[in-house]
């Protein structure tokens, strides 16, 4: 069981009319991984997630999610997967508590032997920070609260695999921080596998154990934030104060530079900071590099 991947995608293609949105994608995600899917708008992130959720059929390729083809999977499979889509306005007239209770009920018949059933309402509301809003009308919730309700609905059946499409849009910094803790807890304690898309690169760096960058219908990078930073010729920024003035220097490897700096006689160095490349910088240079590569082969672009 443990060796079987949660998501196993091979040669995935999606074509709308004459446009290839996904152009041959291979991905394997194992249990307990938190994977962030990044990429510019129109790169095919949502399409990829919707195929894995079973809401769209791919043009070509094999897709196995929790060992089944999502396009043909039944209710028992559905009960093991949690879905948080990009935007939702449904059930505006319902109250938070009864809505979650109704959905929790649907998971009960599918609770497998030895697994815990759906969340208890109070526990779930506590988890997403909506404890005081149990009796509130859904339409009276703020944007961030509504989003947390969507996350709660995605979680209610204790899914083994959770899809989150831009989950933190509209969150204030505190809510965002709490959400990150929640995701960490889910993957650490419940072994939940999480696949999320986001435009917030700091968020991806913080919660994802692995990052996939999708661009032009292909995966152009796959690895941890540090792996990715290493693969582009990145530089670290070293700044310090010396004799009352601020100094800045860039270096690919900061260690020898800092050693020399501190070893210089008679110099008073204070406020020394070494900042390694952020995921944002890595991402920007990767997407730029990919686009430059695309420009060099205009014929390829025309043909596809």
């Amino acid at each position: 069981m443990t060796t079987q991947p949660v998501v196993d995608v091979r040669g995935l293609r999606m074509r709308y009319g004459t446009r290839d949105v996904l152009d041959g994608i291979d991905v394997r995600i194992d249990r307990g991984e938190v994977v962030a899917l990044l990429g510019p708008n129109g790169a095919g992130k949502t399409t990829t997630i919707e195929i894995l959720e079973g809401f769209r059929r791919p043009t070509a390729g094999t897709v196995a999610v929790l060992g089944e083809d999502p396009a043909h999977a039944g209710d028992a499979w559905r009960a093991r997967v949690g879905v948080v889509l990009q935007s939702w306005r449904d059930h505006a007239r319902w109250r938070v508590g009864p809505l979650l209770e109704q959905f929790a009920e649907l998971y009960r018949p599918f609770t497998a032997e030895g697994r815990r059933g759906p969340y208890d309402l109070a526990e779930l509301l506590d988890l997403v920070g909506l404890a005081e809003h149990r009796g509130a009308l859904v339409r009276s919730l703020s944007g961030g609260q509504r989003r947390r309700l969507d996350v709660a609905i995605g979680l209610v059946g204790r899914p083994e695999l959770l899809f989150l499409d831009e989950p933190t849009t509209g969150f204030d910094p505190v809510a965002r921080h709490e959400f990150h803790e929640l995701i960490n807890r889910l993957s650490d304690f419940d072994d939940t596998t999480v696949l999320l898309t986001t435009h917030d690169l700091a968020e991806a760096e913080k919660i994802a154990s692995r990052i996939l960058i999708l661009d032009g219908g292909r995966i152009v990078a796959d690895g941890s934030a540090t792996d990715l930073a290493r693969s582009v010729a990145g530089v670290s920024e070293i700044s310090w104060r010396e004799g009352g003035s601020r100094q800045v220097h860039s270096a690919a490897d900061p260690v020898p530079f800092v050693r020399d700096l501190l070893a210089r006689p008679g110099v008073q160095v204070t406020e020394l900071q070494v900042r390694s490349q952020t995921l944002e910088e890595t991402y920007l240079s990767m997407v730029a590099r990919h686009e430059a590569a695309g420009d060099r082969h205009p014929i390829d672009q025309e043909a596809s």
Binding site: D75, R78, L85, L106, F110, I153
Partner: peptide, 14 residues
């Protein structure tokens, strides 16, 4: 239009 049908699809027996 408001996504209730889509929500139903995302739930078991929805």
């Amino acid at each position: 239009e408001d996504g209730t049908l889509m929500r139903a699809r995302s739930l078991p027996s929805g």
